[in-house]
Design a protein around this nucleic acid. Structure first.
Lengths: 121, 121
DNA sequence: CCTTCATGCAACCATTTGATTGCGTTTTTT
DNA sequence: AAAAAACGCAATCAAATGGTTGCATGAAGG
């Protein structure tokens, strides 16, 4: 394996810095519990940990950890208010993620166009 | 914890079946190696496992496993050709994922509008 | 035929992840 | 001041994940 001739690996790797940045966001969204949290915060404004725990079958600490993952990905933000800690949705990173998907789709469409052109030539 | 009164948990859970379907797709995209594979297949057409391994610092078997994850998420498809197994990008699930992000953003925008309306009232 | 190239399969390993329990701290509330 | 509510921290644990090595298989090519 690993032949020294590299047929079609064209400088791949440092090719998509934008995509790279979206990795933690996708990872954070790739969990049912976390997607549910996002959906809740997105529709219901700022909610506390206790409120977000209600209706789930996991503990408050588990919810806390998921919120931390979402916060690390920049998808939510916490606001301390008295003895409560309210969490709210932060849409900017999600927009970036969607633009990443757009980029991939564009690459794909352009590849299809090139293929089509080469067939017609 | 877990007070029996459920303040703002409004029937959450079975509320977003569409989002639920996107979970494995996001999970598959939430890895740098796999995003790189997607980008390669997206730009370069069908490639073999050996070709996809070139330029990486991981083994062929590791690449195989990542391809399997992508295939389970419906993001890639394999086509056997002689002794080679070519992998190609499959755009439909990615489109679904983008629509999921759109749904979340729409929910958010509507929530903002409701908030604005309630403030003006 | 025999070699080579591309892949498949299985065992194995370290780390990460999702979740728990127990206890301590900080605000409210009475 | 004392009780309760909301939360933080740390230890712990099982399962999933990402990766490896070793060997078997299957198709091309000389």
């Amino acid at each position: 394996m690993l032949p020294r001739t590299s047929p079609s690996a064209r400088n791949a790797g440092a090719k998509f810095p934008v995509l790279r940045k979206a990795v933690p966001v996708f990872a954070a969204l790739g969990d049912e519990t976390r997607l549910r949290l996002i959906a809740l915060l997105c529709a219901g404004g700022a909610l506390s940990i206790t409120q977000l725990t209600i209706g789930t079958d996991i503990t408050r600490q588990a919810v806390t950890k998921h919120l931390q993952v979402l916060a690390d990905a920049g998808l939510v933000r916490d606001v301390r208010q008295g003895r409560e800690r309210l969490w709210e949705f932060e849409p900017s990173r999600l927009d970036e993620a969607r633009r990443s998907l757009d980029t991939i789709t564009e690459q794909w469409d352009q590849a299809l166009l090139r293929l089509k052109a080469s067939l017609e030539a």
